[in-house]
């Protein structure tokens, strides 16, 4: 009998303790509000004061962006990708470090490296990307990075790059050139002798 009443007493008292906590939270709701009204409010970008001389590292996980004028086509990012979502095709540009105006190819990167290759295809399939950031570290010219972070001046952070079509998530960074103009840079096919 006493146990029966003790159970009832314990239930009510612990329930009251719990309700007291929720009540306290309800009073402080304005102060401790953690919910963001998403379309009106955006998630604040955390301050990333890296220090330790690693300021060149971009540690935002967002959409990948390539400054194609700086790309030397070394394929390091393609090899680093664990899911093979980066596809690069290059051809030799006969003249190392020279601008080829007709196809919009610049000879020097912003670091001053002479480019020996023309990047004809640089596709990143962001629907396959696993946001591991492994492609960003090996780049010798710092031309592939995730938007935002230290590059936020050039490319503000792009959290929601949603598309209606999955194919629209394949980002093509190589310059679009007409085929006739490109043809003279492509390796000539050997004529088959009859």
């Amino acid at each position: 009998m006493s146990r029966y009443f003790r159970n009832i007493f314990e239930s009510i008292s612990t329930l009251m303790t719990g309700l007291g906590i929720t009540w306290r939270h309800m009073i402080r709701i304005r102060k401790d509000n953690v919910t963001l009204q998403y379309p009106e409010e955006r998630w604040p970008r955390p301050e990333r004061n890296i220090g330790f001389d690693f300021s060149e590292y971009n540690i935002i996980r967002s959409r990948l962006q390539v400054d194609i004028d700086d790309c030397i086509g070394c394929l390091k990012c393609e090899r680093a990708c664990p899911v093979q979502c980066i596809k690069i095709v290059t051809v030799k540009s006969g003249a190392k470090g020279e601008d080829l105006m007709d196809i919009g190819h610049t000879g020097l990167t912003s670091n001053g490296t002479k480019k020996a290759l023309i990047v004809t295809r640089f596709d990143i399939d962001m629907s396959e990307c696993c946001y591991c950031n492994l492609c960003v570290y090996p780049c010798p010219e710092d031309c592939i990075y995730m938007t935002g972070g230290p590059n936020s001046k050039k490319h503000p952070i792009d959290y929601e790059f949603s598309q209606y079509d999955r194919n629209d998530l394949i980002f093509k960074f190589a310059k679009e050139v007409e085929e006739e103009k490109m043809a003279k840079y492509l390796p000539q096919k050997e004529k088959v002798e009859a």
Binding site: N7, S13, T14, L15, T17
Partner: peptide, 12 residues
Amino acid sequence: DEYNNILTFNKI
């Protein structure tokens, strides 16, 4: 402590 009060030692 708050978790303990609200959940751990709750009779239910």
